[in-house]
Design a protein around this nucleic acid. Sequence first.
DNA 1: AATGAATGAGAATTCATTCAT
DNA 2: AATGAATGAATTCTCATTCAT
Lengths: 220, 220, 220, 220
Amino acid sequence: MDQEQIQTEAAEVQETHFRRQPQQIRGQQRVAAILDAAEQLFAEIGYQATSTNAIAQRANTSIGSLYQFFPNKKAILQAVVARYHQQYRDLIQNILTDDFFFQSLSDAFDSLISALITLHASHGGIRAFLIGASASSEFATEAQQIHQELFARLDDLLAARVPQLPNAERALTLRILYTTTQTLLELSETVPSHEQSTVLSALKTMLISYLSPIFSPESI
Amino acid sequence: MDQEQIQTEAAEVQETHFRRQPQQIRGQQRVAAILDAAEQLFAEIGYQATSTNAIAQRANTSIGSLYQFFPNKKAILQAVVARYHQQYRDLIQNILTDDFFFQSLSDAFDSLISALITLHASHGGIRAFLIGASASSEFATEAQQIHQELFARLDDLLAARVPQLPNAERALTLRILYTTTQTLLELSETVPSHEQSTVLSALKTMLISYLSPIFSPESI
Amino acid sequence: MDQEQIQTEAAEVQETHFRRQPQQIRGQQRVAAILDAAEQLFAEIGYQATSTNAIAQRANTSIGSLYQFFPNKKAILQAVVARYHQQYRDLIQNILTDDFFFQSLSDAFDSLISALITLHASHGGIRAFLIGASASSEFATEAQQIHQELFARLDDLLAARVPQLPNAERALTLRILYTTTQTLLELSETVPSHEQSTVLSALKTMLISYLSPIFSPESI
Amino acid sequence: MDQEQIQTEAAEVQETHFRRQPQQIRGQQRVAAILDAAEQLFAEIGYQATSTNAIAQRANTSIGSLYQFFPNKKAILQAVVARYHQQYRDLIQNILTDDFFFQSLSDAFDSLISALITLHASHGGIRAFLIGASASSEFATEAQQIHQELFARLDDLLAARVPQLPNAERALTLRILYTTTQTLLELSETVPSHEQSTVLSALKTMLISYLSPIFSPESI
DNA sequence: AATGAATGAGAATTCATTCAT
DNA sequence: AATGAATGAATTCTCATTCAT
């Protein structure tokens, strides 16, 4: 999946989510308020438990206005996710430069981890929600689309660094790295702040111990 | 009131999520059917989306019968979780013997991981559901009670093996181990079966590399 | 309505209320327990709010047994009322002797009032319930049947004492007496005990002042 | 938020049984229709037997609309009662002038009784219902709040007229007057119209005979 | 565009009554 | 006779969505 396709899809998604593209500034602000309110409520009490009336109320607007911008409840969730994904993409793009895996592993993971922490800080609620949702429900697809993109990029980078690794193994390696990182990052955020660095250094230890033999197989 | 009835009442007190403990075999079978149906539905479409009528229908019983045994929908979830927890406890108890951490780490994790895989296989749906639910909702407490017990046991065992480790650090160490294990075990179950062993050995590698310096600090 | 008819009706009512006449002593005790429980519950929370299961439970029996004696919930109410009515009848019969209105009014009302107080004391709950029910519901008929009987007897007695009073006026006079008595008796029972005699003597004052000119019209 | 909206909010706070104060004329009409329907049904078949769907149906609206204005069934009853109480208050206020007990007793009771009859005529159903309900249930408090107010006013007036009467006795005197009046008024309304005046004059006779010695104790 | 009233299908829960043991 | 499990219609209430103003 190349860069172009991603943009195309993003545009298409937007057209499906919105009933009407807000034309005036006031309308854009209203949409943003609705998305903020929805993101909070989804994170607080879950998608199903969140009523569209509650979203409108917290966004200081009326239910009628809400439905002027979104055709139904699901579209609101999709828009929230899309907005989050966009920020995710933007942030990641700055980290996953072409020389990412050509730095020391320690440096690479330092920059990746701190970028992810930054992102989580601003959208922690919805992220936790999506992780929960991805376990079971219909939104798994939405939630993991961004993961695909991130995967594809990391795959390219890793392929450049360890060209001798077969494709299938490389993909699996990435999923292992990715899953472990997500989980321990999450743990680090629920833990008291003075323990956070312990968790993060454990994460780094694990990642490096796992990747090192792959990067330098002769050393085993 | 004869001896039998007295025992029944005692049981009723202890099982708070039951409205009435079924006293006839017919009733016990029905309760089991209800719990099976509920476990499936919760796993498939989530707690909120599962209607009590749907549970009754899949259990081949009437909504009235369901409510004769359970006072409300939440109690059904609690009973499902309790049943799962009991099996979890039973299985774990056989693994976490007093010499658990005095075996080689490789052996210890081999037995633990295979026990967990067995358990997951029989209740995969509800486990995935609980993991999702624990991220946000009101059921976190229920879901994590069993974790507390497992933690407490592991804590004892680890304290015996590494007495010089301060309590707080030991607790954090366990959470890191625990979280990583859960996540990668889960991953191993979603992955094609021929890749499963790769994931599990990665898990072992990470756990051992993380724990080794703690077990033998002088060797660093 | 003469004495015979009353007994016939009473018997017929019993046959309608009971599904099966309890043959054994155990059965009779069970029926009594059910009626006691029902009477309490009807008085406490009303007829509609009382469930048949709750009656069975408070009577220490099973719902199945309850329905072996009563065909439906309404029959239980009818039986409760019938039992109350019977006691009402028995008590009244001892007071309303042929010379009732040939005593002084003061003596007559003294004995009537104290008899009613005795009855109320034993079935206060159900009486209050019937008064409430009679205001609106389908049970008005049941509840006021006994009133008819009492009326008929008082009518006879008053006709003997004041033969010159037209029938229609006599009936109305009785309703006025009756209503006032019921109400103030009820008030006397809700009032602190040291105020009770004040209420009762007010009642007597009113009744006598109302009846005196009717008894001795020439004195006006 | 302009002035109008602020006033609306203030009203909402004060009217606790409304979920939302209707802001459009359409809404106000609908609320009135709902209260009318509810008042009729409560009077006809009682509170418990009245379903919210039946109320909506008779009010020619949907169940959803009903619940947009009232949070639950009890709130509808409370609103019905409140509306009745307000009219009760208004009417009474015109009668209980400062010189009420300084008129002749005959004049005083004439005006009071005719005022009450007027009120009863317009809300007879709900009044009868409240009297029934007050005998047993949870709504006693609601129903008798207005009585407290009426009592307090009458107490003031009576204290002015008979200052030598101790407080406790005066309160009891009022309850006796009040109870008797309510009951016989009710009776007068159930009786054929040509008998109505007989009941009312009996009421007056009783009240006057009871009060006279209290007003002029020396004459005894 | 904005507001909020209107709608009704659907969800949880109760309870009178029947039936199997 | 006794027990208690089984049944399902009926009830209260919610909420996504549409419509009138």
